[in-house]
Amino acid sequence: MEILITYLKVFLVGGIICSIGQILIDKTKITPARILVLFLTLGVFLTAFGIYKPLIDFGGAGATVPISGFGYSLANGVIKEVNEIGFLGIFTGGIKAAAAGISAAIFFGFLASLFAKPNIK
């Protein structure tokens, strides 16, 4: 029963975040590329103001899988690093925390495009 409730929370939080994006796309004609930037930046600043962490505690992957969760790791990483090594952490913390995601995107992206051929939708 408990696991069901956890997954329901994940579904709800993830679904709501995506729905907000959908409303923005349909109502304001913001393009998907801009939506990505907007949500990521929001994720960074919401984390900085301590608002995003409670959302992750509640919704788990529902809050970490959306691109705003990527923003969370950036902001969280930079804060952690500043705590540990001081000023230099400002420049190393963010990318360090996001390193796995960026590297994976580059590597798998490269691999995938080697084997794929563009095709009509």
């Binding site: 796309i25 998907p32 794929a116 563009p118 095709n119 009509i120 939708k121």
Partner: peptide
């Protein structure tokens, strides 16, 4: 527009 493989509406 966007690349063909890009998932958008």
């Amino acid at each position: 527009r966007m690349p063909l493989e890009h998932g958008n509406q």
